[in-house]
Computed example of a mutant assay.
Amino acid sequence: MIDLHGQAGLPYINRGVYTGSCEGMRYRMRKKEEEDKKVLEAVIYPEPFCFEKTAEDQKEAHEFPFTDEGFRQAIAWMNEQYETQKERWTAAKNASWV
């Protein structure tokens, strides 16, 4: 389960990109600005590669309001995706990438 309490928050994401992983699922959160509006983009993708080296068709993105509530929603969404796609993440974690 992803729990970022005390580790990251909007002030951190406002200055950069936050990445992490959870049992085969990697994730990335960043601020996006669209037409005078800030949104929080959360992206999930399987191990083993970093965001830049992972194929686009392996990534799933969702946008949330750039607010504390949106941050909580993003974490809840990532946890939900982890649970509903657990087989995908387990396969990625257990794959041999030699």
Rank of each mutant, 00 (worst) to 15 (best):
F66Q: 01
G20Y: 10
Y45C: 12
V39H: 05
Y45Q: 05
Y27S: 05
E87R: 06
Q85G: 06
T54K: 14
L4N: 03
W97M: 04
Q85C: 07
A91N: 12
K38Y: 09
R15K: 05
E60N: 07
D36L: 15
F66Y: 04
T84M: 11
I44W: 01
Y27F: 15
K53Q: 08
L40N: 00
F64R: 00
E23I: 04
F71I: 02
Q58K: 14
T67M: 14
C22Q: 14
L40T: 03
C50H: 15
Y27N: 14
K32H: 06
Y18N: 04
I13C: 12
Q58P: 01
R30E: 10
H5C: 06
F64D: 00
G6W: 13
Y45T: 03
L10R: 03
A55L: 07
Y27G: 02
F71Q: 10
Q85T: 01
E23L: 08
M1S: 13
K86C: 00
E83T: 07
W97D: 10
R88G: 02
V17Y: 12
E63W: 15
G9W: 12
P65E: 12
E83V: 03
Y12R: 08
I44Y: 13
E34G: 04
Q7N: 11
H5V: 04
E80Y: 14
D36H: 12
F66H: 03
G70N: 13
E35Y: 10
Y45A: 07
R28V: 01
T67F: 02
T19Q: 15
W89M: 05
K86I: 10
K38I: 01
Y12P: 01
W89S: 11
K93T: 03
P65M: 04
Y45L: 12
E35D: 15
A76F: 09
T90F: 09
Y82N: 09
F64A: 02
S96E: 08
F64G: 00
P11A: 05
T84E: 08
G70T: 01
W97Y: 15
L4C: 03
V17N: 05
H5T: 14
V98E: 10
F64T: 01
I13M: 14
P65I: 01
R30T: 04
V39W: 02
Q85D: 08
K53N: 13
V43Y: 11
E33V: 05
H5W: 09
R26P: 00
A42H: 05
G24L: 07
V98Y: 15
A74S: 03
L10D: 03
Y18V: 12
F64P: 00
M29E: 11
E35G: 14
N14Q: 11
E69I: 04
P11L: 01
R88T: 05
Q73D: 14
L4R: 13
K31A: 06
P46S: 02
T54R: 06
I44R: 15
I75D: 04
A61R: 15
C50D: 15
Q85E: 14
M29W: 14
E69Y: 11
F66G: 04
E34Q: 10
G24M: 02
F51E: 14
E63S: 11
V98K: 15
P65Q: 13
C22F: 11
T67G: 08
S96V: 05
D68M: 00
G6V: 05
Q81T: 02
G24T: 04
W77H: 09
A55R: 12
V98P: 08
Y27T: 09
R26C: 09
F51S: 07
K38N: 08
Y82H: 11
